[in-house]
């Protein structure tokens, strides 16, 4: 994936190089500006078995700051924030694929403009005729207390 574009970023930013699991890497530009999820919304996406986005709802588009067409076909790590420890996503894939179970967790996501938003995410496998055909994730607004706990924990893991 391409590096983030300075022209898209709002506010003071720092540059971080991220190495992804698939061997690729890119430079992301991150700011300290948080966008809270509006109350009552659910942010929904689906991927193929490899984690490539196939479907997003309007709330997903709004919160990510990307255009719909930029998201479809992109790897889900397009939202990966450098403050998120790799261990969290290793646990996600381990739980989903190896153990065949639902995964829950608190995730800090990166916006196109360099800002971030915290979510409580659940991911499950989509099973049709005994085969995993993709994954669905639904994210909702976490409490402040849970966000602070996650921030403290993740700082010890990155």
């Amino acid at each position: 994936m391409e590096d983030m574009n300075v022209a898209d970023v709002v506010g003071d930013y720092r540059e971080v190089r991220i190495n992804y699991y698939d061997g690729s890497s890119r430079t992301v530009l991150v700011t300290d500006i948080e966008t809270p999820i509006p109350d009552g919304r659910l942010i929904v996406s689906r991927t193929d078995p490899a984690g490539i986005i196939t479907h997003v709802n309007d709330s997903f588009v709004d919160m990510s700051g990307f255009e719909h067409q930029e998201l479809i076909g992109a790897p889900h790590y397009i939202l990966r924030h450098p403050d998120m420890p790799a261990a969290a996503f290793e646990d996600l894939w381990q739980t989903l694929v190896v153990e065949g179970k639902k995964w829950h967790g608190y995730v800090k996501n990166l916006r196109k403009d360099g800002g971030y938003y915290w979510v409580y995410a659940t991911v499950i496998a989509n099973i049709r005729n005994n085969e995993v055909v993709g994954f669905t994730s639904v994210r909702r607004k976490p409490s402040r207390k849970k966000v602070v706990e996650a921030e403290v924990l993740y700082r010890t893991l990155v």
């Binding site: 659910l42 929904v44 689906r46 659940t122 499950i124 989509n126 994730s137």
Partner: peptide, 11 residues
């Protein structure tokens, strides 16, 4: 409907 059921499952 499968999609809706998956979604209910996550909730």
């Amino acid at each position: 409907t499968e999609f809706m059921i998956d979604l209910m499952d996550t909730l």
